[in-house]
Every structure is written in structure tokens, then in C-alpha cells.
Design a protein around this nucleic acid. Sequence first.
DNA 1: TGCCTATATGCCGATACAGTTATATATTTG
DNA 2: CAAATATATAACTGTATCGGCATATAGGCA
Lengths: 109, 109
Amino acid sequence: MTRLTLTPEVIALVAERFKALSEPARLEILSCLRAGEMTVTDLVQATGLGQANVSKHLAILHSFAFVKRRKEGLFAFYSLADKGVFQLCDLMCGQLESELKKRSRVLAG
Amino acid sequence: MTRLTLTPEVIALVAERFKALSEPARLEILSCLRAGEMTVTDLVQATGLGQANVSKHLAILHSFAFVKRRKEGLFAFYSLADKGVFQLCDLMCGQLESELKKRSRVLAG
DNA sequence: TGCCTATATGCCGATACAGTTATATATTTG
DNA sequence: CAAATATATAACTGTATCGGCATATAGGCA
């Protein structure tokens, strides 16, 4: 695997991708998609977010290739592009867990 | 490993952590620390950022336990808390690479 | 004690972005 | 073609936050 060197340019690109995942609404959408392909309207109902809002979040996720789009008639079906996103989330959750554990250990004295 | 369920609360916590890594300046700082422990002044020189700015970014990274702090006299030595951050960055870089590859393949037609 | 240095913090201006509303685009149906 | 529906986009507003400046805090030293 060719390793990208962390030049400022690459760092900026990586930061952009982290930012794309830094929004609860977008993580929520991704979490929903874990169950399978969904339309925009499905996601609106599942998340309680506004339609325009969901569309914008999906556009962002799509621009980073976190999700795929399939157009069929009036509907746009979105699905996860790959499982890499959840590797990221799982890693993050792992850190979060050990962090929470440490904190509660401190509180417990 | 106990798996956290992705409740809105957990999602918010995960999003916060992604946001902490969504700033080029902070990734730059983490990248510098990969070489080992550094003081704030070291980091100011290495990154070209302002001192107040570096201090603030470090405070954020520290609040999420991405970095450790060791106080010695006037100096504050910062170091990476663990290597999990770079597992995250490497995963992100991997996605980035395959994304860039795909894009250039499209351009090449 | 008084000065110097390292770091942290409060304030401010500028910018970026989420969410809402209204509208545009596009596709199906009558 | 006209109406209805699904999705995308534009304009606007409020909020958050980055970076810079000034200052506070704290430790070391004469």
C-alpha cells in the first residue's frame, strides 16, 4: 500500500473528510443506511430532519463518496458506498469507550 | 468488546470527536507529535501557528484525550495519548487514496 | 521582591455552516 | 399539456469557531 505523506495538502483533504463525519445528522443518516438502501423521503421520516436538510447532507456525503446514489424514476436511492465509514466509527467508538471508562473510574475514585 | 449502540447520544459524542480531528491545524499538531513529546513553543515553531492558537488547539485535543500533558517547570510537554488517532488517519487516508484513484481514472477516461 | 519566560485565557472580527423556507427541476400520471 | 410528487437548490438567519491581540497566570531567577 502506497503511503501518502502528510503534507499540508493531504492533511487538508483528511481534515475535510473528518469534518464531513463531524455532524450528528450525517452520522445519523449513515447509521440509517446501514440497514440498506433508502430514499430521501425514507431518511426524512427515519431521522425527523427536514427534506432540504437531508438532501444537503446527502450531497455532502456523496461528494466524499461515503454514499452511492441510484436514481429510479422520481426517487433517489442512497446506500453506503463501502463499510470503511463504520470502521472509522467503530475505532472512534472504541476510543470513546475507553475514554468513558477511564473517566468513570476517576469518578469512582 | 462491548459494542456501543448508536443512540443519538452516542452519535453526538462520536461526532464531537470527529470534529476535533476536522481541523487542519490540529492534525498538523498531531502529526508533529508523532515524532515525540514537544512543548508548546516547539509546536509554534514547527507549525508556524500563533502561540495562543496552538494552546487552544492543544486544550481541545487534550479534552478529548488525544494528547497527554506533562508539566515541568515553565514548560508543558505534550505527547500523543495513543496511536488510535493514526489508525483513524490511516483509514481516512486509505479511503482518500482510493477515492483519488477513482477520480483520476475517470479523468483519464 | 521584581523581572522574565512559557502557557493559558478572554475578547473580538470574520468566516463557515446547519437548519428553515421558498422555489426550481424533473418525472410520472391523467 | 396540466397536476402531482420527489428531490435539489437558492436565499436567509442564527450560531459556532478559527485566528489574532491583549492579558492573566504561574514558575524560575537575580
